[in-house]
Design a protein around this nucleic acid. Structure first.
Length: 854
RNA sequence: GCCCGCUUGGUGGAAUUGGUAGACACACAGGACUUAAAAUCCUGAGGCCGCAAGGCCGUGCCGGUUCGAGUCCGGCAGCGGGUACCA
């Protein structure tokens, strides 16, 4: 009997062999087409988690599959190494962010390497390394020169006790997470990227991203949010200036019953100077965080300013102007007119402040008495009560209003976007320094090229809140590059999304002196297949798309779209456990007893099992992949990640599932190492004229090859695994007798080993060797199915009567329809179901189904 | 709040993209092997009725289109992701 499969030993052995031979180094071999597989690089948080195991398993499968398909594959790995958690660690544990980060990288690199991933580790990059971020600084300066980067004031969350800027994540129920103080909004000068310059292109090019999920494309389109409407410049009663308002519904202008401006609108600020009540109201509005969810879910409130806007088309009609917390300064002009009958939010506001609700659009089939109660009418219809618009459709009325506004000079048609320019500066230490110097005389002065990189100072402390760079006088104070006078460095650092907006391009030339080498860009970019979590559907992917356009404008690249193909994978979930006091428990703190109860291991008390959720530290429903790999080996972990759930869906981690995968690994091992008949030597051709059970096995083998290839191409890895298991079952049931059988069995086993290669590379490599081959399995070409072995002569089809299945019949493939119909109608159960009623119609779908309608 | 998903046996999922619902697994039950356990192998199984043949019901809920709906359309509910300073 063969020894049990020793995953630990075998995996270490092949990892060393692959490494020594450098098999996964990308060669830039011009004789083969290139293929770039990339998984989203990890934030080095400490240890790898199951989500990492999942995404890197998926990417590795694709990379190995493409290699086998003859491509020169680029498959790199690096670290998204800047970010807040390192600073939090510094504050909580007193460890320097750099030390914390680099030590995490070392740990996680080792853990990834234990998974046997086919990375070209020579290309590893870390964004916190000056070798990386110096190029980012150069790119930024070029973007600044192109006017793609600029500086202006923007709102941030301000903690008035800690005197520091807070991330949205650090605002909990409107309070700072450390100080507990009520958060305020505050204006600070910020660096911005002009992503809105590319709004139309970013929107329209989504169409070309055919290998992206539709959901992601729709999300991005909605995020950009292009809408066509009009601006109207209302005259103000008793004043000479005007109020500029944007609306997507100019057609409803005769239904307007109020105007509202944002709390931070200049008009509101001006009026507040002489109105203490308004000042208080604005302060109240500013006491929410800056997040959209916080603003949108806050109770809608308004303050009547007493000012009135004059209707552009109705003589003598004026609209009261409110300051309202739901009007966003960042969208449109920061001012709106409200039409309660045709906008739900305006209707709620009108009911609250007792404003008129005037119907100006009526459904086509409604009468004069049409009215709205609690629900605004927002669909298409015909204009009423609207002077020169009466009888027009919504679309025509929009056009007509725009024309009138244009003619009178009171406004014009206008396109706006929900998309806002990207604020890239952060008032934090652990990020890429923004390479500019502020001089009292010269203003903003870029750091000269020869002084790059601007590196982070190491001697900083985190014992008080705020940005250590701002307190670091020695680092901050520099002579102005232009005039030589004493000046100060910009103490802001970049949003980490900037780092991740171009890393994929740097992987093509990780050691180049220039940021991006043209030849390398030509060879490898764009990324052929990108794999990552759906949570990045908007920000990271949109920023990267913008960044490539900006880099193109600066002359770095000659493509726009960074990722041709995108696979978004779901999360890894696990059930949750709580003890009687509601404390969350780790899976290793509980036990399942034979009597069916679940108890705490330490004190035996009852444990409540909660529903399955995304693995998270806060819920403690985490399983450390390192433990799993240690116990079962990487291949078992990888197989489990691929087995049951399709990649886009969430995956439920279960102990049973991992054990099932482990048993299958052992079964494959026995199946190949202990065949039930002696196999012919490696490389011997299959004898011709094989029939009987051996032919059936060959057919099963070739069908599996075809199906698994197709499943992998379509990212249906769970199905590919099921097909492979089916072939194993077939092989297990096969009772070989003669040389032809042995030959068919050998072909089946070899195919099986090649097919599992991208999934369980160590096991496959070992089995390949045991089958008598001397070269690497990972260098073997992918097999092709023999077309003559994957067709069937007969097919079983269902026969329905009135849509209910009554029988199945076996017929020859592509049988004549009349013959199929006759066979179906002859079935006793079909005859019984028809029960003598006249047959009205018989529908025959070739090779599928027959439906008899009576 | 808004945008995008998801919802199928005890469980994860499959279903040739409108054509036989439940492939392949996990868990479970019974059996074989074993002194015993583990491992392995075999068998069973959506629910209800029936000895069986077979019948009825069944893909979150309500409605629609169709010869035929898990799949398409309208509405609703629950769960998840994103919401611009978490990454």
């Amino acid at each position: 009997m063969v020894e049990r499969y020793n995953a630990k030993h075998v995996e270490a052995k092949w990892q060393a062999e692959w490494d020594t031979q450098g098999v996964f180094r990308s060669q830039a071999d011009e004789t083969r087409p290139s293929y770039y597989v990339l998984e989203m690089f990890p934030y080095p948080s400490g240890r790898i988690h199951m989500g990492h195991v999942r995404v890197y398993t998926l990417g590795d499968l694709l990379a190995r599959y493409r290699r086998a398909r003859g491509f020169d594959v680029l498959h790199p790995m690096g670290w998204d190494a800047f970010g807040m958690p390192a600073e939090n660690a510094a504050m909580e544990q007193g460890v320097h962010p750099a030390e914390w980060t680099w030590s995490n990288i070392a740990t996680m690199r080792g853990q990834l390497q234990s998974m046997g991933l086919s990375y070209d580790w020579d290309r590893e990059v870390a964004t916190c390394s000056p070798d990386y971020y110096r190029h980012e600084q150069k790119m930024f300066l070029d973007m600044f020169a192109e006017d793609l980067a600029y500086r202006r004031e923007a709102w941030v969350n301000w903690d008035p006790v800690d005197n520091t800027v807070l991330a949205n994540e650090q605002v909990i129920d409107g309070r700072g997470w450390r100080s507990g103080a009520l958060v305020e909004r505050r204006l600070l000068p910020q660096w911005m990227f002009r992503i809105t310059n590319f709004a139309d292109d970013l929107l329209e090019s989504l169409e070309s991203l055919e290998r992206w999920p539709d959901s992601v494309r729709v999300m991005q389109a909605n995020w950009i949010g292009r809408s066509h409407g009009a601006t109207i410049r209302f005259r103000l009663a008793g004043r000479d200036d005007r109020l500029e308002v944007f609306t997507t519904r100019p057609d409803t202008i005769f239904g307007a019953s109020f105007c509202a401006v944002a709390a931070n609108h200049p008009l509101a600020s001006e009026l507040a100077k002489s109105d203490p009540e308004l000042t208080a109201f604005i302060a109240e509005c500013n006491r929410t965080g800056t997040s959209e969810a916080a603003l949108e879910t806050a109770e809608k409130q308004g303050y009547a300013t007493g000012l009135e806007a004059i209707h552009p088309f109705s003589d003598g009609v004026t609209l009261p102007i409110y300051v309202a917390n739901f009007v966003l300064m960042e969208y449109g002009t920061g001012a709106i007119f409200g039409v309660p009958a045709h906008d739900q939010r305006d209707l709620d506001f009108a009911r609250k402040y007792d404003l008129p609700v005037r119907i100006v659009v009526r459904p086509r089939d409604a009468g004069d008495d049409f009215s709205v109660a609690d629900e605004a009418f927002t669909d298409d219809g015909l204009l009423v009560n609207s002077d020169f618009l009466n009888g027009l459709t919504v679309e025509n009325a929009k056009k007509t209003v725009a024309e009138r506004l244009d003619a009178s000079g009171d406004g014009e048609a206008k396109t706006t976007y929900r998309l806002r320019d990207w604020i890239v500066s952060r008032q934090r230490y652990w990020g890429c320094p923004i390479p500019v110097i502020h001089c009292d005389d010269c203003g903003i002065v870029p750091v000269p090229d020869e002084d790059l990189p601007v590196t982070l100072p190491e001697d900083v402390s985190f014992d008080e809140p705020g940005n250590p760079l701002e307190r670091h006088e020695a680092w901050k104070t520099v002579p102005c590059p232009a005039c030589g006078k004493s000046a100060t460095r910009d103490t802001d650092t970049f949003d980490t999304f900037v780092d991740s907006s171009w890393y994929f391009a740097r992987f093509a030339c990780p050691n180049a002196d220039v940021p991006l080498e043209p030849d390398a860009m030509k060879r490898w970019l764009p990324v052929d297949q990108y794999v990552g979590g759906i949570e990045h559907a908007i920000l990271h992917l949109l920023y990267s798309r913008f960044f490539m356009r900006a880099l193109r404008q600066c002359g770095y690249v000659d493509f726009d779209e960074p990722f041709s193909g995108l696979l978004t994978q779901g999360m890894v979930c696990h059930e949750t456990y709580q003890d009687g006091d509601g404390n969350w428990l780790f899976p290793e703190q509980i036990e399942r007893r034979d009597d069916g109860t679940v108890r705490r291991l330490d004190d035996g008390s009852d444990v409540q099992i909660g529903r399955s959720e995304k693995m998270s530290k806060s819920r403690r429903n985490v399983v450390d992949p390192a433990d799993m790999i240690d116990q079962y080996g990487a291949d078992t972990a990888r197989l489990f990640m691929l087995s049951d759930s399709p990649p886009e869906r969430d995956l439920e981690w279960t102990e049973g599932g991992i054990e099932g995968a482990w048993r299958y690994v052992q079964r494959l091992w026995r199946m190949v190492c202990e065949p039930s008949i002696e196999l012919p030597p490696a490389g011997q051709p299959i004898p011709s004229g094989i029939g009987g059970a051996a032919l059936d096995l060959r057919k099963a083998t070739h069908k599996t090859i075809a199906a698994v290839s197709d499943d992998i191409e379509r990212f249906r890895f769970n199905r590919a695994v099921a097909r492979i298991r089916e072939l194993s079952n077939t092989i297990g049931d096969f009772a070989p007798g003669d040389a032809a059988d042995a030959s068919a069995l050998r072909e089946a086993l070899e195919s099986l080993v090649i097919l599992i290669g991208p999934m369980m590379p160590h096991l496959a490599e070992e089995l390949w060797r045991r089958l008598g081959f001397r070269d690497f399995l990972c260098n073997q070409p992918w097999p092709n199915a023999d077309p003559s072995l994957i067709t069937e002569d007969n097919v079983v089809i269902a026969v329905q009567v009135n849509g209910k299945k009554r029988a199945t019949v076996e017929i020859a493939v592509d049988s004549d329809q009349a013959a199929v119909e006759a066979t179906a109608l002859a079935e006793p159960n079909v005859i019984a179901s028809i029960a003598g009623k006249p047959v009205r119609k018989v529908i025959v779908v070739p090779n599928r189904i027959v439906n008899v309608v009576v």
